[in-house]
Simulated scan of single mutants.
Amino acid sequence: MPTPVFRFAPSPNGYLHLGHALSALLNFDAARSCGGTFLLRIEDIDATRCRPEFEAAIAEDLAWLGIAWQAPARRQSEHLADYRDAIQRLAAQDLVYPSFESRAEIARLVAQREANGRWPRDPDGAPLYPGTAKLLSAGERPGLPESGAPYALRLDMAAARARAGELAWIEQGEGPNRETGTVAANPQAWGDIVLARKETPTSYHLSVVIDDALQGVTDVMRGQDLFWSTSVHRLLQQLLDLPQPVYRHHRLMRDSGGRKLSKSTAATGLRELRARGVTPAEIRRLVGLA
């Protein structure tokens, strides 16, 4: 039986808060309790927002909490070739196409379509891709990315879904509506997802499944806000012939207004709590751990 492998994978685009502490501690405790391995992954593909000082703060905060990880940490920015290879494998199955609308143009297309009723949205509330790039002929597509125009590489969801067949995953945690056990995947709810952009040669969905496979991750323990993303991850795992981890989605830390703690809402950072004299033991209590 393989040694269980857990991971904590923050983005260095801000300081860690109590929500991160809960996830990191749950993964570290689970790995320690079963004699498994705990990994740290730095998800730094967004070069415009990720900064070295935030990465240094991640290591400092985790060490302060008493969390140790197997060195070295994997930095996604150092493994872009792995993601390009995965896209090429999907393209060889005729599952990838380029789209060239800007975000503003996509917003206008959505507005036009919603003149006749609400346009479908993904589980996160974002509108599905409304463009027609998939309808371009094979003769029209070659050379467009090389023209210098901004573009996104998208997964042809209908074709991918037909190739992969019915999918499910093993949930040993709990979804936002108490889903557990064997959960049917519904990747089509996300539409033609972006696999990469001109300025960012991979996406969260693609890089996370590649990283988990290459690092031998057996147990993915993460927040319930990513529960339905697992549908997309199971699809990509199937298409790329990657192993399927067990998933354990955990509760979220929320503020007094019921909102999930987030860097975007300026949730209080662990470094600020530490400066106030809060101890690691008190952090455990604040996140509801013994």
Results as ranks from 00 to 15, higher is better:
residue 7 R to L: 01
residue 9 A to R: 02
residue 10 P to W: 09
residue 12 P to S: 09
residue 13 N to R: 05
residue 16 L to A: 09
residue 16 L to N: 07
residue 16 L to I: 03
residue 18 L to T: 03
residue 21 A to R: 01
residue 22 L to N: 01
residue 23 S to E: 08
residue 29 D to F: 00
residue 30 A to I: 01
residue 34 C to D: 11
residue 39 L to K: 14
residue 41 R to L: 03
residue 43 E to C: 08
residue 49 R to K: 12
residue 50 C to L: 03
residue 51 R to K: 14
residue 53 E to S: 08
residue 53 E to G: 06
residue 54 F to Q: 13
residue 55 E to I: 01
residue 56 A to Y: 05
residue 57 A to F: 09
residue 59 A to D: 10
residue 60 E to G: 00
residue 60 E to T: 05
residue 63 A to C: 11
residue 63 A to I: 06
residue 64 W to I: 04
residue 66 G to L: 04
residue 67 I to A: 08
residue 68 A to P: 03
residue 70 Q to L: 08
residue 76 Q to H: 12
residue 78 E to F: 07
residue 78 E to Y: 05
residue 79 H to Y: 06
residue 80 L to H: 13
residue 86 A to K: 02
residue 86 A to F: 02
residue 87 I to H: 04
residue 91 A to G: 12
residue 95 L to A: 15
residue 96 V to C: 09
residue 97 Y to L: 11
residue 100 F to E: 06
residue 100 F to N: 12
residue 101 E to H: 14
residue 101 E to V: 00
residue 102 S to R: 06
residue 104 A to L: 10
residue 104 A to F: 06
residue 107 A to S: 14
residue 110 V to I: 10
residue 117 G to V: 09
residue 121 R to P: 05
residue 122 D to E: 14
residue 127 P to I: 11
residue 127 P to V: 10
residue 127 P to W: 12
residue 130 P to F: 01
residue 133 A to K: 11
residue 134 K to E: 15
residue 137 S to V: 08
residue 138 A to Q: 15
residue 140 E to K: 09
residue 140 E to C: 02
residue 144 L to S: 14
residue 146 E to Q: 15
residue 147 S to V: 11
residue 148 G to Q: 13
residue 154 R to G: 13
residue 154 R to H: 12
residue 156 D to H: 15
residue 161 R to Q: 14
residue 163 R to G: 04
residue 163 R to Y: 08
residue 164 A to N: 12
residue 164 A to T: 13
residue 171 E to N: 12
residue 175 G to V: 02
residue 178 R to P: 01
residue 180 T to Y: 00
residue 180 T to D: 05
residue 182 T to R: 13
residue 188 Q to S: 14
residue 193 I to A: 09
residue 196 A to P: 00
residue 196 A to V: 02
residue 197 R to C: 00
residue 198 K to D: 10
residue 200 T to S: 10
residue 201 P to M: 05
residue 203 S to N: 10
residue 203 S to Q: 10
residue 205 H to M: 06
residue 205 H to K: 04
residue 213 A to C: 07
residue 219 D to T: 03
residue 220 V to D: 03
residue 223 G to H: 02
residue 225 D to E: 15
residue 226 L to R: 00
residue 227 F to G: 07
residue 230 T to Q: 07
residue 230 T to K: 07
residue 236 L to W: 10
residue 238 Q to L: 00
residue 248 R to A: 08
residue 251 R to N: 09
residue 255 D to K: 02
residue 258 G to S: 04
residue 263 K to F: 06
residue 263 K to Y: 03
residue 264 S to L: 03
residue 264 S to M: 08
residue 265 T to E: 09
residue 269 G to E: 14
residue 270 L to D: 11
residue 272 E to R: 11
residue 276 R to W: 03
residue 279 T to A: 09
residue 280 P to H: 10
residue 282 E to Q: 15
residue 287 V to Y: 05
residue 290 A to H: 11
